[in-house]
């Protein structure tokens, strides 16, 4: 059975519980799989006037217009939680815009050095640890440059974003923003309907909010 079949069958099994969502003009789901500070993301959207739904239910996630894939913590345990709920199969099959934040973005890559963990393979990129030439984690406000995506509409080069991370995504073809710490790395990625940001737009002031608004507008 391929991924598509499995999801269709999941959906057909339970057609009623989320019937109330049908017809909603716009819905935003934050995937709730036990990793991370999702409250902050939910509040950030609330400040934009959007009520985000927290969910790990496949039907609800598939039905959403936009999906946020958050993540804070350790990669291998987060991936374990995704597998337990079958979300590791569901997320790569989504067709609507999906935004991975922080560890969420790293898990969307093909592999991470953290716990030698295989990722979802949505982005063809490797996740590596910063060297000990710099303090790890990188913690604080750094700039994003080389912006090339509608996600960054009206965001100027060298805007400051808040980051907290010990692992980074190597600069690659899918990079839509870069930052410098230890080396130049990809601080945002895009592949089709999938987007990822290493920084925390929900904690990055008004410019961060603007990026979340841009995501809603995609």
């Amino acid at each position: 059975m391929n991924k598509e079949d499995k999801i269709v069958s999941n959906k057909s099994k339970s057609s009623s519980p989320f019937g109330k969502l049908e017809g909603a003009s716009s819905s935003l789901v934050i995937i709730n799989y036990g990793a991370g500070n999702i409250k902050s993301i939910q509040f950030a959207f609330k400040r934009l006037g959007v009520e985000a739904i927290l969910s790990n239910n496949p039907d609800e996630i598939i039905a959403a217009d936009k999906v946020i894939f958050p993540g804070v913590g350790e990669a291998s345990s987060a991936m374990k939680m995704l597998k337990e709920s079958g979300l590791d199969k569901l997320i790569p099959s989504l067709k609507q815009p999906v935004l991975g934040i922080c560890l969420g973005m790293q898990l969307m890559c093909k592999h991470t050095e953290e716990g030698d963990t295989k990722g979802l393979g949505i982005f063809n990129a490797e996740v590596k640890r910063f060297s000990n030439k710099v303090k790890v984690p990188q913690m604080g406000w750094n700039t994003i440059s080389n912006l090339k995506s509608d996600l960054f509409k009206d965001i100027k080069d060298n805007e400051f974003m808040y980051l907290v991370h010990s692992y980074y995504v190597e600069n690659c073809d899918e990079s839509i923003a870069t930052s410098n710490y230890d080396l130049e790395y990809a601080s945002a990625l895009e592949n089709d309907n999938f987007y990822g940001v290493q920084f925390h737009p929900e904690k990055s002031g008004l410019k961060g909010s603007k990026i979340l608004q841009n995501f809603l507008n995609l």
Binding site: A44, R47, Y162, K203, S209
Partner: peptide, 8 residues
């Protein structure tokens, strides 16, 4: 605070 403040 989390609801209203947009910095860490």
């Amino acid at each position: 605070v989390a609801e209203q403040v947009n910095i860490p």
